Simulated assay, not measured.
Amino acid sequence: MIDRRSAAGRLLRAATSGGPPVTYALIALCCAVFVISPLSGFVPVSGGADALLAAQAGYFERWGVIPSELWDGSAHAVLAPFTALFVHGSWLHLLGNMLFLYVFGAMAEERMGHTEFALFYLGCGYLALLAYAAAHATSDQTLVGASGAISAVLGAFLYLFPRARVTSLFPFLLFLPLRFPAWMVLIFWFVLQWLAAEGAGSGPGVAYLAHVVGFATGFLYAWGRYGRGARVKSPATATEGESQP
């Protein structure tokens, strides 16, 4: 039987002392990949706007997931869902994803362990992108981003830390920084993703389905892997919760 107070204390001490290396490494890698991409604005492309758009399109095709090409059995098709996890389409896309990973990744990594968390992140992200590609198997639109993997982290966090609290900003509350239980913030986020996926139509756009699949996969993994005894029910605070959007 787990000692909930000591478990919460260990998680907080570990997260605030040395930091979670896998979470920080994932953030650093995603940022580095974006900075050296033609999307960042730091890499000069000669030939004007048309050449820049061509370079960006080629970059996405090389490193992203193209659903209609994912099932040809080539090495590129097999690796594409992994490489796509580290590619983002804009600064806003990158910063939004990294903020959520920064807020919720530390405690999830500490609970799972570094190696398991890394495998969990990559595996769930791969499955989320694969599910989206399967649902839009004839699409030629490229899919990139870490949203599916980060959604899995959110799902696991909800199961493992149902009473953690984070500081959140909601637009319908005039963006006032108010403290909410993490489960309330995450369920609200999940419902928004589900509703957006339902209303997205038949063609691909923002990969809301990947978000939903990632979140559900992460939650179910934590439930199956750790069971009810592993849930930290004391009102622990998410280590980076003061920055939660």
Rank of each mutant, 00 (worst) to 15 (best):
A54G: 06
A54Y: 09
Q56I: 10
A57R: 15
A57E: 15
Y59G: 00
W63G: 01
S68Y: 02
S68I: 04
D72C: 12
G73D: 05
S74R: 03
A75H: 09
A77Y: 03
V78P: 02
A80C: 01
P81F: 01
F82M: 11
T83C: 02
A84H: 05
F86P: 09
V87M: 02
H88N: 12
H88V: 08
H88D: 12
S90I: 00
L92D: 10
L94F: 11
L95S: 08
G96Q: 02
N97L: 02
M98S: 04
L99T: 03
F100T: 05
Y102G: 02
A106Q: 14
M107Q: 15
E109V: 10
E109C: 03
E109F: 08
E110D: 13
R111A: 14
M112N: 05
L119R: 11
F120C: 05
C124K: 01
G125E: 00
L129V: 06
L130A: 13
Y132A: 14
H136R: 15
H136M: 03
S139I: 05
D140T: 15
Q141D: 14
L143H: 01
A146N: 13
I150V: 14
S151R: 06
A152W: 12
V153G: 00
L154V: 12
L154G: 06
L154P: 09
G155E: 03
A156N: 03
L158Y: 09
F161L: 09
A164C: 10
A164Q: 03
A164I: 07
V166T: 02
T167E: 10
L169M: 12
F172R: 09
L174S: 13
L174H: 06
L174K: 11
F175V: 09
F180L: 12
P181E: 13
W183P: 06
V185H: 04
I187Q: 00
